[in-house]
Amino acid sequence: METMVCPMGGGATRLYSNLSSSHPLPLPSSSLDPHQPTDKNLDPDFCQEQKGSSLCPPDPDELLRQFEEALKDRPSRFHRKFTYSSNVDSASSSPIRVMQWNILAQALGEGLDGFVQCPLEALSWSRRKYLILGEILTYRPHILCLQEVDHYYDTFQPVLAGLGYSSNFFPKPWSPCLDVEGNNGPDGCALFFDQSRFELVDSVNMRLSAMRIPTNQVAVVMMLRCRSTGRCLFVAVTHLKARSGWEWLRSTQGSDLLRQLQNLVQKHTGGPVDAPSSDIPLLICGDFNAIPTEEVYRRFITSPLRLDSAYKKLSKDGLTEPEYTTWKIRPTGECCATLDYIWYSQDTLRVDAVLDMPTEEQIGPNRLPSFSYPSDHLSLVCDFSFKEKE
């Protein structure tokens, strides 16, 4: 199987370090969260014991080799290409690669989501974890925004920490994963960044409200400083309420997120969000569970934060979203829709490249997830650059 590796993300080329150094100090047994990281519950497939410490494979290429070996009997993964902006000077640019992805919580995939055309074997964690991490390592983003993460502590945090990523995770208050027998804890949103490219300035976990009433949806927001340019940006990851009939709730949740982000921008700039001095860009990634005609989409397009959707760059007119970011078959029928977005500050960030969507033929008649792809949502990957200050 041919594997394309894109040379992005400097921190992803480092050797793995001792994972125990990134673990928090142990808590008393009475208060220990069973899903918090310990040497005993790290995924053994990615770690080996050496002198009493858990060590992981030496580099991302070794991990990719392991993934290929573990999944050598499966169909080839999707081959996707980047569409580049016509005004990008690739020789002089040093873009920031961003990945947005609802990875499908393991408990939901096996227990509640009902993917009627997907074989149970393809939904097993022993297969899916290699596909998920393989997708991340293929594109090696500097900023990684994930939803439906329910294996944060035993897999994603330790493995990606060894690759040079720092992260924050915020679980849903009432995760549906907890209703599934044998679950691995609540699912939530996770935000990772490459420490060789960025340093953390601030981090905030937000519980989204509707009409001042807290809801079950959350967001993680970080303010990062780029080490090469010294410029800062805000990054947010969120996952809005699912299902039809809840459009009003998604709209109010989106409005609450925008309001809280405006407050953060004002806090760090000391002025109104639309003032000329407010030059700290925003990136907002998420599964909005909303098609482009929904009210929450309009709220983002018309926000004073002056946001635009990066994936419109794939269209010929630059105004149209992709036909789909998710394609699945459930007992209720087939769903093919655009629900996932990467929003960006159009005055201060430039979209240099966008990863295209696989074709219907690539996805196949049984749709997603599958032996080739581990989630019902497709990853979104974009390269951004800071615009020059005037």
Score class of each variant (00 low, 15 high):
308 D>I: 08
264 L>M: 14
256 D>Q: 10
208 L>E: 04
225 R>Q: 15
220 V>W: 03
380 L>M: 12
291 I>N: 10
279 D>G: 11
260 Q>N: 15
27 L>D: 14
253 Q>R: 11
351 V>H: 05
355 L>V: 03
48 Q>N: 05
323 E>P: 01
379 S>M: 13
38 T>N: 07
17 S>R: 07
130 Y>W: 15
373 Y>Q: 00
51 K>A: 11
201 V>R: 05
145 C>D: 09
59 D>G: 06
114 G>Y: 12
88 V>C: 09
156 F>R: 10
26 P>I: 11
319 L>C: 13
312 K>Q: 13
265 V>S: 06
53 S>M: 06
337 A>P: 00
334 E>P: 03
325 T>E: 01
24 P>H: 12
384 F>P: 12
341 Y>A: 00
231 R>M: 02
106 Q>I: 13
382 C>Q: 01
377 H>G: 01
21 S>G: 01
168 N>H: 10
388 E>P: 03
358 P>D: 01
387 K>H: 01
375 S>M: 02
346 Q>N: 06
89 D>A: 05
329 I>Y: 15
177 C>F: 11
47 C>W: 12
284 I>E: 10
78 F>Y: 14
351 V>S: 01
390 E>V: 13
99 M>T: 05
160 L>P: 08
43 D>M: 05
338 T>M: 01
305 L>K: 11
157 Q>I: 02
110 E>G: 07
209 S>L: 06
208 L>S: 05
175 S>P: 09
84 Y>S: 10
123 L>T: 07
204 V>Y: 04
26 P>E: 11
51 K>T: 04
312 K>M: 12
159 V>M: 08
173 P>C: 09
100 Q>T: 05
337 A>Y: 02
382 C>E: 02
167 S>N: 08
128 R>Y: 09
100 Q>R: 03
76 S>G: 10
42 L>I: 04
6 C>W: 13
335 C>G: 02
356 D>Q: 07
374 P>Y: 09
340 D>N: 02
298 R>V: 06
264 L>A: 10
250 R>V: 10
187 D>S: 15
109 G>P: 11
333 G>I: 06
91 A>M: 08
137 L>D: 04
333 G>C: 09
359 T>A: 05
88 V>Q: 07
169 F>D: 03
334 E>M: 08
276 P>W: 00
77 R>E: 07
387 K>S: 07
